[in-house]
Computed example of a mutant assay.
Amino acid sequence: MTRSGHSWRAPRRLSRSRHTDVRGLRYHLREWGEPGAPIILLLHGGRDASGTFQFLVDAMEGDWHFIAPDWRGHGLTDRAPGGYWLSDFVGDLDILFEELFADRAAIVAAHSMGANVASLFAGLRPEKVSRLVLLDALGNLLDLSPVPIVNTLLRMLNAPRPGRSIRPYPTVPAMAERLRRANPRLSEVQSEFLAEHLSRPLPAGGFVWAKDITFERAFPTLHDAAEWGQCWSRITAPVLSLLSTDDRAHAITSDPAEVSARAAYFRNISLAAISNTGHNLHHDAPHAVACAIEAFLRDEPVLECSGLEPVVVI
């Protein structure tokens, strides 16, 4: 049952939680599967949380041990008083790898911001990543060179601040309805599950999104694809990039030439698109994404999975 008393379908695989200390923050880790099974590290995107990998986890056929942290300022992990810089996420991932894998290389599957962080890390620590799956992410959306410094600084100054009052939602189902308006592909059951795992109750009543509102500040990142490429070119692991068919303005997927240019930085990359998906392709088509990941890990043709399309490299 949800906190609002509204029921949702029981997941096929139940998750469990634990916490660990990462660079002064109490990090929340969600796990599915049995210890001893091959591990897949799942990294969520911005304004998201680990629990929203549930649909993908349930769609995977093999026996896996999934580990998914909530990034700093997200889900059940501590907020970061100093803000959110791209380098901080890379640093957090470095510490998580030391704790979770020691000297072993690991499989990583990651979405959006999490995938961008993972791709940088895989270039900086190539010996630590054995396989890398990127879900709708090949760097920042737009090249910003030269940097529009006035707009960047104003965005930082004008962004939400700690302590700002937030207008709450009355119920979790109301939040689920908001998610369905943003992504009509979500079923009612899916949207209720996501709303449950992306929200937190307020002492005075009502619910708000669990992310730190100050994450909406500038989130300084690399400025252009060439900077990302310096890291990508160092990756030694095979890479699978699964793209959505998202047609939103400035999405990488809307520019085949840009996709090709960015893919060229990687030594060993396979690209495929998932039909009829938006940016959250692991919500929209979890079975297709799961099939592609497991085929990739078995060195089998990814495009034989239902719902996948080839990406033409120009």
Rank of each mutant, 00 (worst) to 15 (best):
G51H: 04
H65L: 07
T77F: 01
L124I: 11
G82Y: 13
A105I: 09
L124K: 07
H111G: 03
M60Q: 13
A118G: 04
R131Y: 11
F66S: 08
D92V: 14
R72M: 01
H65Y: 15
P126K: 05
E98Q: 15
A49G: 05
L76A: 06
G75V: 01
D63S: 13
D78Q: 03
T77W: 09
G123N: 05
R79L: 07
L120S: 00
L120T: 04
L120V: 13
H74Y: 08
D94Q: 10
E127K: 02
P81W: 05
L124D: 13
D94S: 12
A105V: 03
V129H: 03
P126Y: 08
A49E: 02
G114L: 08
D63W: 05
P126N: 11
G114T: 06
L93V: 08
S112P: 03
R79D: 13
L86S: 04
L93I: 09
S130A: 13
Q54T: 12
P81Y: 07
G114R: 03
A115C: 11
G73V: 02
T52A: 02
M113I: 07
A109L: 12
G62S: 14
L134C: 02
L93R: 00
G62L: 08
F101P: 06
P81C: 10
Q54N: 05
E98Y: 11
L93W: 10
H111S: 07
D94P: 10
H65W: 11
I107W: 07
D63Y: 04
D136Y: 06
S50R: 03
S130F: 04
P69S: 07
R125W: 14
E61K: 13
A80N: 15
M60I: 06
G73K: 04
A59L: 04
L120E: 04
V108W: 01
P81M: 10
S112C: 12
S130I: 00
D94R: 13
D70H: 12
A105E: 13
W64A: 03
F89P: 00
D92P: 14
F55V: 09
F121R: 01
G62P: 01
R47A: 13
G114D: 05
N116Y: 09
R104L: 11
P126H: 08
L135I: 15
S87H: 12
A59F: 06
L100A: 08
I67K: 06
A106S: 15
D63K: 08
R104E: 15
V129P: 00
T52D: 08
L76D: 11
H74R: 07
R131L: 02
D88R: 14
A118Y: 10
A59V: 12
F97N: 00
A110P: 02
V129E: 03
G62T: 10
W71P: 03
P126V: 08
D58F: 05
Y84I: 00
M113C: 03
A109E: 04
G91R: 09
